[in-house]
Structure formats: structure tokens, C-alpha cells
Design a protein around this nucleic acid. Sequence first.
RNA 1: CGGGGUGUAGCGUAGCCUGGUAUCGCGCCACAUUUGGGAUGUGGAGGUCGUAGGUUCGAAUCCUGCCACCCCGACCA
Length: 491
Amino acid sequence: MEIKKVKRSEDYSAWYNNLVKHADLAEHSAVKGCMVIKPYGYAIWETMQAELDRRFKETGHQNAYFPLFIPKSFFSKEASHVDGFAKECAVVTHYRLKVDENTREIVVDPDAKLDEELIVRPTSETIIWNTYRDWIQSYRDLPILINQWANVVRWEMRTRLFLRTAEFLWQEGHTAHATAEEAIAETKQMLEVYADFAENILAVPVIKGVKTPNERFAGALDTYCIEGLMQDGKALQMGTSHFLGQNFAKAFDVKYVTKENTKEYVWATSWGVSTRLMGALIMSHSDDEGLVLPPRLAPIQVVIVPIFRKEAEQSLVMEKADAYFAALKAAGIRVKLDARDNQSPGFKFAEYELKGVPVRIAIGPRDVTNGTVEVARRDTKEKQVMAETDLVHKIEHLLEQIQTNLYQKALDYRTEHITAVNTWDEFKDILENKTGFVSAHWDGTSETEQKIKEETKATIRCIPLNNHLEEGVCVYSGKPSTQRVLFAKAY
RNA sequence: CGGGGUGUAGCGUAGCCUGGUAUCGCGCCACAUUUGGGAUGUGGAGGUCGUAGGUUCGAAUCCUGCCACCCCGACCA
């Protein structure tokens, strides 16, 4: 496999595209802004799904499925929601094609116009809350805790593989509660679930915070988020959890009868993460050799590469390789034995590095004689010869070490790239030269936030949860401020 | 959607200015020798040159439209 080498340090964006393509994660499709997720990339996504799905169920949620199409009228029922999404909606206007009698081409049949256009969902709050109206009568029907795995469409101007595509895969949780307190608790709980998943599975440290009104979800009272920092110093929003108040209940007239026999509007949350997490994963750990996967997410955690010259060696080596394979598999490790005899070991080494396989075990005649294996780890590129004794435990331990090391490396990078500044010059200088998060006082106004965005392209990523309060002056306006917030350039 | 660039075999490319149906490398197939960091040799297959038109005796090459992608903007819960 001849791959074009693009250095991460020279052109981050080209490096990223090159990596996604050559690690066999995804490729551009014939449809503008839409990608094909290839089997290897999809296997990683499936692992993410499995981990998240388990966490959702552990916190009491059930999966369900709602339609891809939403009647246009539903969108206009919540004013700020329609404002937020109107500009990027795909619309279905007809339901039939026909052959044009003159040109013989397939054309839209003008007689097949829909009475009411259908919107291809950009998110499902409206169709779901329209449904919840029929599901909820009494406080006894609450809470409703539902998640949906789905695809959504947002007609973006400019797309990038995984980070922003016109169609993407995600999950969206939609819950209904009797009280504001309960809904807020749910919103925060799901933020914790996301943070736990990001840090313990993706090995990406995240900052938990709340969005400013400018950056809020269209229709939410509060948007909580987890923000990651990529290797090029740009921030990436990795997940959001919204407290929707009674906005959607009011828009869709969803009321319940309380114990006291009064009628109240229902309180709502929604929360989601998407295939964008694939982008986060790639941009957090990978290097010039290719993808680097945390073991807990890797479709292949360990690859065994047998090395042999003659047939006599082959049978000896393969006997051992088969035994290791069986032992590792029995221990629940996702292991692959690459017995192809038409590729050299060197080729295989490079290939599995490109694909980010965390641990490689090479075994040749020398090892068979000595009772050893050569173990190489992807994260540090270190190789060591290990005695075969207790191999499974050693590998299990190594996988854990790699998982921890990747997280620690990412955490160190992020810690170095959170810079507190007190002056406007410093603010601009850090954003431009050091990059990363800038922690600065802000006067709390949308105007200042907007001005800063116009002048520096940096946005307020979040107001960190449990932020400590301190007196200060806004780095831009000089007006009084009570806390620092995190700014960054973002994807 | 505005400015710039690119599009030739699965991938990366030469040829384009100065028109005559296409170059090289990797990959692929067969055989042999190989295999501890991207093997070597020999033979072979694979292209309506992004697409639709136009100019021309003749278009990868010149002209126009369209499509896709990349970079910079605008946009982006």
C-alpha cells in the first residue's frame, strides 16, 4: 500500500484527511457532503455505540425509533428552534418520478407534489414531542426516558469527514419529566455519562461546562457540553446535553395531571453525540504513522504477526501463533492472527500501525526456540522481547497501560494549553501563537462575545462547571466580571 | 454561496502552454525466489483522460456549462 505521507506538523488538515482515507475509516461519496463509512471505521463506531448504549440503559433509558421525515408545520411550533435549523434543512416536496416524454429522462412528476412538505430531520425534538403528547396524561406516565440511534441531515455549506457531514449518525436522547429539578438532574447526569465515556473509552479528556446563550441549542434554556482539545490546539464540541424547560411541551401542548389533580406542562431534556466523536478520536491521539486507537475502542486490540522462512519454520511458528491467538481470544481480547503469506512482516507492521492497532505481537523461529515473543506498542512505538510465560496477563496489563498513557498524554497536552490571560494583547497572542483554551474574564454580554469572535475567530467554548468565582475585569471591554470562561478557536 | 486551486487505471502522477486516442511508480493477477521494519525478478490484466456540449479532418490538450473535492472566507445547536 503506497500512501502519501503528510506530516501532522506541516498541514494538519491534509494530514487528517489523508489519515481518514488511508486508515480505511471513511471516504467521500458521490453525494456532496456525505461520506461512506468503511468497515474498519464503522467497527470503531459500533464499539462507541455499544459502550454508550450500555451506559444509557444502566441509567434507565430505552431505545425507540421515530420517523426520518417531519411535517414542515411541526418546525414552526417552537420559534427559536426553527430559527436555528431553517437554514440547513433538506425538504421533500414530491413522492414520485416519471419518464419525460420528450427527453426520455427521469424527472420529478409535478403531479406528485406533497400537500405538506416533509423535512428530513436535522434533530427529532418536534416529531418526538408531538408523539409524547399522546403518551403522557398523568404524572404516573413520567418520566419518559428514551434514546434513539439515527441518522440526521443538516445541509452544511462546508463539510469535513466525520467532523461535519451533511448526513451523520448519532444518538439523541429525549426525556420528559414532571419537574424542572428532575429534568435538570437528567441533563447533568447525561453530561456525566458523556464525560465518562470520552475519558475512559476514547481516552480524550474533556471539560464539562455550560454554553453561553449565543451558543445554546435552538430551543434550550441551558446547553451543557463536553469540550475536547485537539492536537492542533483547536477545540471540539464532543457532546451536548440540553435542558429544554417547558418550551417543547408548550409548543406541542404536552401536559400532565399532577397528584393534586392540576394540569402542568412537562419538562424536557435532549442530549446527543455523533460520528463527530470519530474525528475527536483521530485528532486526539494519532501521529505521522497513522491512527492511534485506545485499546478499549480498537476493533483489533492485538495483532499477531508470524514470521518464517521455510515450511518447516512455518508450521513451528504457526503452531505457537495459533496457541497465543486462542489464549488471548479466550481471555476476551480482540485479537487477530495475520497469517497472510503474500505480505512481508515489515509490510504488516506498517499496515497495523497505520490502522492504529494498540499491540503487535511478532513471533518467529528465534522466539519459538527461546520461548519468547516480540511485543510492540503503538502509542510509544516501543518494542520488547517478552517471555511467553503468563503472556495473556502481560498483554492485558499492557493494554490497560496504553489506555492510561493515551489519556495522560492528551491530558498533559490540554493542561499545557489552558492559558489564563488578563489583557487583550495577551489574549490575541495566545490564541494566535500558542493556541488552545484561553481562560479569561468576560463581562457576560452577547455583544462582547460577538465582537471577540469577529476579531479573533475564538468563541466561548463553555463556562466550566464548578467554576470558581473571582473578581476581575473583562479582557475585551474592561467591565467587571465575576469569573473566567474558556475561549478557543473551534471546529 | 464568494475568491483561488484540482480532477488522467484502485492510489499517486507525466503529458495540456505549442491538438494526432496516453507516461511512470505503487497496487492487482500468474510463476519463481523471498519473509525479524513497507521483498525481487519475469510475464500479464486494467483507461469512453470528472461530466455534458462546442470548435476541429482529428480533443486529455482549445472554448462553455455542470459535478465533485481541497484551501481561504461566509455559514455552522
